[in-house]
Structures are given as structure tokens and as C-alpha cells.
Design a protein around this nucleic acid. Structure first.
Lengths: 150, 150
DNA sequence: AATTACGCAACTCACAATGTTGCATAACGA
DNA sequence: TCGTTATGCAACATTGTGAGTTGCGTAATT
């Protein structure tokens, strides 16, 4: 089992959806196979992207997942935000010690600023990379009729 | 149980050591009480700081932990490095898929840069805050003879 | 010599994320 | 209209990781 694979899975799925020519809905099962996971996990993850308007889903026959926006309009920051990810985590003495000693309060203040700065930078950088940028980095396959990536 | 409390525990312990007047060794048990954990965890954590030369330990009677450097010379980045922490974690399809598909490789390259940038900034910012800076933020206690925090 | 405290290894415990199963619901096609 | 296919959702099982625990060895102080 991998920890924190949501982001990875989401990007993988989005990339496959965007790379598909001609575009057609991909089922959770198909995406799961590509990504080495199972359909339910795919639904859980893409469900979050759907709430943020990045993808749409269709039920029934010939249903599945589709991009809801152009690949140029989806940034890594969008995905990061849609999943509610927090790559920067420290849990400085979590929620439950309101009467924490004076030293603890001082520590919190001293470290939080650095974390907030780094997170802001991270989001800013992620926002500068679009799904289309990612696709441009993929070496072109031999076949021209159908792109078949793993 | 809290996740990733090592950094928090380490800083807490260092701050207590630095704040103590007059300086004397603190035992793992004492530090554990302050921090709401147990002596073995304290040893594990401070052991790492010791390897990096931030603290020293003395065995036997009146033994315990001491700062090995001045509070002005210990930065949060030192602690971060000593513990081998990685606040930025994403696990982009961990180690085990060497024949990963083309899309996966493209994703990795596209995301890694942003993560590396953010981590570099984080370390840079942590490096600008010393243990002494943290202590300066602690409101002075009433007693002048002995500082008793938590 | 007794006490104290670190050092280390093996084990247990708890939590969170992933994986699994079952069923309901909706859409498509014959 | 009925069967098939797919998402949506909830409940449960699995597993990996960090923290907690116990026991014993070793070194230093009194």
C-alpha cells in the first residue's frame, strides 16, 4: 500500500483522460488498471475532482469519466486544492492541548510562518504547470491512430 | 497518538534545555513529562540530535541531556536536518514501478521541480530562526530564581 | 556496591489510508 | 420493458507506520 497516492492517482487519471484520442469516457475500472488500483478508490478520488469541476461522470452504458475543462485550464494547483491535500504537515502538538506550556506556544508561532511561506510557494509553483504541460512531456508513441499508454 | 511529533518533541526539549537557569542536565523522564510522552521516545528523538552534535548525553547519576551548542547557533533547519524530516511528502508512485507508463514519468518530472523548490524555501526559512529566537518569544515567568515552564 | 540514567532491541498498540464487498440508482440499448 | 453497465455510497477488512512498552545491558556517580 502506498501512502498519499491520491494526488498521484488523480494526476495519472487526468493525464490519461486528456491524452485520449479521440476523447471518450474512461471507466473507473479502466483507470484503476492503468494506475494499479481498484475502481472504488478511483471513484473516491475522481469524485473530489468532480466536486471542483475538473471532471464529470456519466452513468450507465458507455459512461465513465471525462475532463470538464481543457487540459490547458487545469493546473496542478487545482488538483492539489480539489483533493484538500497538505503536503506540508507537521502537527505541532495537535489540537488537544489548550493549556500547553509557554514554550509550546512560542514554538508554534516560530515555525508556522516558515511552513506557510513554503506552502504558498508550493501552490504558486503548482499553479504554473498545467495538465497540457505534462502531456507535452510525454514521448509520442509510434501509433498515430490510437495512443496506447500503459 | 500524534503523527510526526518528532520535530515538535525535539524543539520542545531543546527549548527547555536552553531555558533552564542555571543549566543542568535534564533526564529523558523529565523531558518526557514536559512533552507528554515517555522516556524511550525522548531518547530515540534526542539520540538523532546527538548524532548531529546539537545535544550531548551523560550517563549515570546526575546525568541527562545538555545542549552541545549555544542557543544562538541552533537553527530550526539544523533540527529538521538532524531528524531527517520530510515535511513535503507526496510519494509519486513509490519505488516499485520501474516499467511505469510514459505518463507516470512525465508526471514525476513535472511535479518534482515544484516540490524541490518549496522544500528549499522551507529549509531556508527554518535556517533563519534560531533556538534563541524562539526563547525570546516566551513570556517571562514571575520567578527570577528558577524558570518553571509547564 | 547500589543507584541512576542512557542505549538498544523486540514487541505491542493505535490510527489512518487503502483495499474490498455489497447494494442502490441511473442511463443506455435491444 | 428488461438486462447490462457504470457511478455512488456505506460498511468492513487490511496494512503500513509512528508511537508506546518492556526488558536488559552498560556506564557513571555517590
Amino acid at each position: 500500500m502506498k501512502r498519499n497516492s491520491r494526488f498521484s492517482l488523480a494526476l495519472h487519471a487526468l493525464a490519461h483522460l486528456a491524452a485520449l484520442r479521440p476523447p471518450r469516457p474512461l471507466t473507473s475500472a479502466e483507470i484503476g488498471e492503468h494506475s494499479g488500483t481498484n475502481p472504488v478508490v478511483v471513484r473516491r478520488t475522481l469524485g473530489m475532482l468532480k466536486e471542483s469541476g475538473l471532471v464529470s461522470s456519466e452513468k450507465g452504458h458507455s459512461g465513465g469519466w471525462l475532463l470538464a475543462k481543457a487540459a490547458e485550464e487545469i493546473t496542478l494547483a487545482d488538483v492539489y486544492a480539489a483533493l484538500g491535500e497538505r503536503f506540508l504537515r507537521m502537527d505541532v502538538d495537535g489540537e488537544d492541548n489548550p493549556p500547553g506550556c509557554a514554550i509550546e506556544r512560542a514554538l508554534l508561532g516560530g515555525v508556522e510562518a516558515a511552513l506557510a511561506d513554503a506552502e504558498a510557494l508550493l501552490v504558486e509553483r503548482l499553479g504554473k504547470t498545467t495538465l497540457a504541460d505534462i502531456l507535452a512531456r510525454i514521448p509520442q508513441p509510434a501509433s498515430v491512430i490510437g495512443i496506447v499508454v500503459n
